[in-house]
Amino acid sequence: MLGKLGRWLINHIKALLYGLGFFFQIIKATFGFIKNGRVGRKVLTMQILFTGVQALNNISLIAVALGAVIIIQGVGILPQFGQGDLIYPILITIITRELGPMLCAFIIIARSGTAITTEIGSNVVNHEIEAYIATGVNPLSYIAVPRFIGVTLSLLLLNFYFNFFGLIGSYFITQFIYPIQAAEYFHKILYNLHLDDIVSSIIKSLVFGVIISVVSIYYGFQVEQSSTEIPQMTIKAVGTAFVLCILADALIVLIYYT
């Protein structure tokens, strides 16, 4: 029993160290890619297209709907307590600081995280990775790094769009239900939006992007021989990415606001 526990712990520590080593290898390869990434540039473009551009309709719809719901609920309830202006800080807290980066991260995990793990897993099973190595292409530089940069950058950009649609787009939807003076709304939103909120939002999306991409790539490469390992690793990748994103969010909030 004690032996089993010990082995379990040792295996997990080994896996953690391996994961950290993998992360640093990616970071190292990223600098190489930035310096001389001519071959992988197309892969990066495609990754941003798949992760960023193609997720834009989902992200914008969710952002507009969420923003509109907050405004409609807030305008209905808050003035009853004489706190009508509280709607703006609430909107900013939810859209910019908290739920925006997290929702974008969840959508990217579901869309691109799974796709990356599945694709790399099937590359491994079909010996495509070995073919890259045999040709002289470093799989980390060519496969991992463009996905790492692509997902991280896409998440950051999607977060900008989420903020734009959530704070500005939602206003226009609200007009159909609760007309608010445009000048008043935008003045108060922009007055209540602080640089702190934006910086926190950017930090979160960058950290979530790094987590999602590294975890998805890592589990993709964990596939060894059989195609049946691919769905197993995809599930693990999704679970791990979710947990790590939530932990990172809590950690950032703790560091940032204490």
Partner: peptide
Amino acid sequence: SSFVFQDAALWANKSVYQNMSLPLKLH
């Protein structure tokens, strides 16, 4: 050097042309 794989191991997301082009462009 080069390697001919038992199951061809062509890059599935690349066309025949792109499969041929990558080693050339790299070197």
